[in-house]
Amino acid sequence: MFKNLLLRDLRLAYYSSSNFIYIGSFFILVTILIPFVINTETEGLKSVFQGLIWVGLALALLLALDRIFSSDFDDGNLDIILRMKVSYEKIYLSKLLSVWITYCLPIVIIVPLISTAFNLTINETIFVTINLFCGSFGMAATAIGINALLMGLKRMIYLKSIIVIPLYIPFMIFGVEQGSWPVLSALSMIAVVVASFATSYGLRLYGE
């Protein structure tokens, strides 16, 4: 059941415009555009890039906000999903994996590939990628939890963004620090656990 749900979400992401290529291209464009408008030296560029990665990830997840649960809620597919013999927690876990694979994995893959263009050393690239890997799960979980609670609000992506962005601040603060992956992992674990309760509660409320 869990596998089917995950495969279905990945297939849906592939069919829709939110596939790897679109997310990857979006992220590359965001990171390439900023140095054009910010006049900065090599060292400055390096630190701007490390911050940009997190802004790019946050923007990619904000794009997903109106798709996680909301689209299935609007068109009636959520009725079918909730009648599958699968617990709310497994529905959440499948969403977490599908959102991470669709929106975060392309960025985790692209960052090491383009980091040399921003003069990051191999060591710095490894640290940045590990940070991103550890923090992205928490950010994806946060997006899912908020969306599950607010899925009934149609076309309210701005409200959802206003709620989600402040929750991303801790990830961004620690994300730009080298070697802060243990803190990011802890933040992610907290977010994943809290979001699982929020998602279960949101899905339970759905019928009402």
């Binding site: 849906l12 069919y15 689209s71 068109d75 009636g76 597919n77 009725d79």
Partner: peptide, 8 residues
């Protein structure tokens, strides 16, 4: 239900 459960 009244919703078609279709991705338009």
């Amino acid at each position: 239900g009244q919703k078609y459960a279709l991705k338009k």
